[in-house]
Structures are given as C-alpha cells and as structure tokens.
Amino acid sequence: MSALRAPFFWVLLVVVGGVGLLPILTGSDGTREDVFLVLMLVILASSINIIMGYTGYVSFGHIVFFGLGGYVAFYLMLNHQVHFVAAALVGGIVSSLIAFLLGIPVLRLRGAYFALATIGINEVVRSFVTNFDPFGGATGMFFNYQVYDSYGGAKNALWFAYDAILIVALLCTITSLLIKKSKFGLGLLAIREDQDASQVLGIDPSRSKVVVYTISAFFPGLAGAIFFFKNGIIEPGPAFDLLRSIEALVMVMLGGYGTVAGPIVGAAVYEQLRAFLITNPTFSSLHLFVAGFLLLLIVLFVTNGLVGWLRQRTPQLRRYLE
C-alpha cells in the first residue's frame, strides 16, 4: 500500500476527482454528460491497460465485459426490482466470474491468437444475446420510467449514475496504480516482457494472468451496468460494440501503454478530439479519416504514447506521472 503515499497518487486523486467534481459543482447537465462519457472511457481504457499494458495480452474484445455487466444488471433491475447499486455489483462480479472461467483456457494462447479469440468471444456472446429471449433478443430491453421512481425520478437517477461512474473511475484508476506498484504488478510486467524467462525467475504466469484478467473484467462490468441504467435501454449492438473496444485500445496507445496515467490522458484527449472533429465543419465528414491518420502517426512515431513520451523526456516528472 506504499503506492498510496506516492506523489502520483495525489496527482491522480486531484485530477480525476477535480474533473469529476466539476459537473457536481456547476450543476450543468451538459458538463455532466460530457464528463460521464470521459469517465466511462477512462474505465474501459484503464481496464484494458491492466491486461494489455501490464501483462502484454491484447484483449481486443474487452467490451464483452461491459455488455455482460450491463445486461445482467439491467435484467435484475427490470425483472427483479433489484436496487441499482446491488445490480451493478452483481453485473461486475458476473463479468469477473466469466473472465475467470474463460481466462483459464484462453490465456494459454499467445499474441495474435489471443487477440483473435477475444474478438471471437465477444461475437459469440453478442450473437447469443441477440437470440436469448430472457434478455429481450435482438430488440433488447428497456425501462419504463417507473424504474427511476425509486431513485427520486429520472433527473435524480442521472445524477446518481454520474456519482456512481465517478466512484468506479476512481476505484479503477487506483486499482491500476496499486497493481502497477505491487510485487504482483512487477510479475505481470515480467510476463509481458518475456513469459518463458519470467517462469524461470519463479513467476507462475498462468495464475497471474487469470487473476489480472478477472480484475480487468470487473470495472467494465460495473461501467456497463451504470451506462445502461442511465440509458434506460440496452441492445446487443451497442452493448457489444467491437469498435468501442478498439477505440479504447487506441486511447491506451495514445496516452501511453503500460502507464497508469496513460489511459486517463488518452481517453480525455481522444474524446475531446472526436468531439472537435465531429462538430468542426471542415472535418465533420472526414472525422474517421482524421482519426485513422492520427492513430497511424502515433503508432508509427510516438510508440510510447503521450505519457510515455513525457516520462522519457523529463525524468523529473516521473514521480508525478506514473
């Protein structure tokens, strides 16, 4: 827990917490929606970073846990009147459980094979849910507004969802920091660098990978539960949207693979950029092209991402930017 005394922990708390408090202080609905989205992306990107950046396993289909958590929680709220907080927790736990069970066989695969398998798993679950009647099949499920009554009406429910996502984002990034600074995290980094050599050094890669995959599925599960609670409707397409998974990977790369701050910076910058491109008259129709072009530049020339680049350039900053 010595990580909690590190200067960076306070930087993290102040920045994420500060931005998170902005909508609460101003009470603005617009700001709240913007920050909600960024926080949700921070959760997705940070979770992917834990398995990909620390451990070297590219979980392309990580969005499956977002969708699963969302569906499980939505189902419980709609059909069994479970309270939102309890339903979200169950959603997160189910995501983790499924990650644990899938992880045992799938994490034996390496490199591209693992990446492909995670895409496959997402598609299996998506097409299964599309045909699964208890979850509403292809049309999904939706709340009638009475569901929100127990949370003081729809308007209050939106704020409630916001508070929840802020708390989960903080928990997720703090978990990411704790892992990175722990002995367990050092073992993960060793696995990322050379799995066979790490075994010779006394690390049990199979166990470490399954544990970290289970952790990395928990937060997207919670985020999915919160997002679809706020949305009031859940459908297979948006819940298991592979593109969103890939966007989160891009955020990790943009911010800095394997750093704690990277996914946060990446999510914020990516979302700002996307919002700018879509609303800008010159770029709006070309926004996909511009996004692709920027991604290519980053991949080819700024391999370490923004945070990695800053850390390389200014060693003095390293204590404040993990």
């Binding site: 050092l186 073992g187 790490s198 050094l201 006394g202 690390i203």
Partner: peptide, 9 residues
C-alpha cells in the same frame, strides 16, 4: 533483478 529476488527462493 528485483523480479528475481521477489519470486525466487
């Protein structure tokens, strides 16, 4: 080297 010390004997 820390990896070795952490996970060794």
């Amino acid at each position: 080297v820390t990896v070795g010390a952490c996970f060794g004997r």
